[in-house]
Design a protein around this nucleic acid. Sequence first.
DNA 1: GTCTATAGAGAGATAGAC
DNA 2: GTCTATCTCTCTATAGAC
Lengths: 199, 199
Amino acid sequence: MTLSEPSCFFSALPPRQAKTLETSLHLFTTRGFFKTSVHDISNLAEVSVGFIYHHFKDKEGIAQALYNILLQRMNELIDDIEAQYSTCKERCYAIIQALFKLTEQEPEAMQFIIHARHKEFLPNEKSICSASAFVRMRALVFQGIENKEIRPMDPLVAAMIVYGGAIRMICLRLDGVIETSLETLADDLWLNTWSGLDP
Amino acid sequence: MTLSEPSCFFSALPPRQAKTLETSLHLFTTRGFFKTSVHDISNLAEVSVGFIYHHFKDKEGIAQALYNILLQRMNELIDDIEAQYSTCKERCYAIIQALFKLTEQEPEAMQFIIHARHKEFLPNEKSICSASAFVRMRALVFQGIENKEIRPMDPLVAAMIVYGGAIRMICLRLDGVIETSLETLADDLWLNTWSGLDP
DNA sequence: GTCTATAGAGAGATAGAC
DNA sequence: GTCTATCTCTCTATAGAC
């Protein structure tokens, strides 16, 4: 899976639906969901309002579709990493590197996944932290404790230490506080994070 | 400063303005800013719409007032900690404990501070990560590196490691993913976080 | 399937009495 | 200072032509 082109997330869909979702992702992350009207999307994506309502249930339906597609991609990304690596340490680091890469290449997608406060506009969706991809990320750490790759501690605490710094860096990068590419900081982060967990 | 009573944040204000802000904080964090109407606030706070518009410029003005007051409190909290402790390690741990305590006692205030995506409804306000309290928190870590309390590394990376796990735990606690009090997990977190930073 | 025009509802903000 | 009534506008969603 390459992540370098915006269209890659939506390439399985017909082109105008893909355009609608790309445009919605852009507007939702820059202006916010509630400050984006369906007409804004219609104008910028060059599709009619009728087209949008024919293919998506309503405005929330657009957000729901984005949410499903992006989390699906995250799950595929974890599938790949689990297939390629076997130790907890390798897998967790690979996930962090993949998230950093995604942040640099597709900041809007990352913003939507991490930051969008889905609860406000997807009331039926659980918190993003409960989404399968994030549960699987934590599960990798739990296994690491069982395997004794990680020193004994509360599993949830271990998971927060493993991913907390990385997720925080992603947030600050998306907010413009960090001005350098995350990929150059990944080694420094991981070296010092892991030394707190090594048995 | 005690944080155990909701009114403590707003106790300097006349009672009905305090009630307005308390109610707004409650509705903004539970329903969201854009799904809360001024009439909702008026009804629940038992004040008139006219009262609200007389004391606050507009709906965003309410959010701005909340933002200012809560960040002010965070700054006072850091003042207290800087006065009471002198080492980087002690100060950072005290901040994490204070944030955990605040999360347990005033979850709505914490939710607003950390999670509210102010950019959507306070477009003139910088990202919360740039707010003075958060900048000061990072500065404490930077000093720790200069003092050689923390092993040499990128200062921003060090700050993310110090606070990343804690902030992540706060988010998961607020979202209901963590079901136990954060205060019982603080020691475990800090012990294993710091051992990645100790020279 | 796709479009335009429009209905209908709700919200922010204000005017003006007290 | 405080209240109620209302104005005005924007947005979601749909109806109906093609």
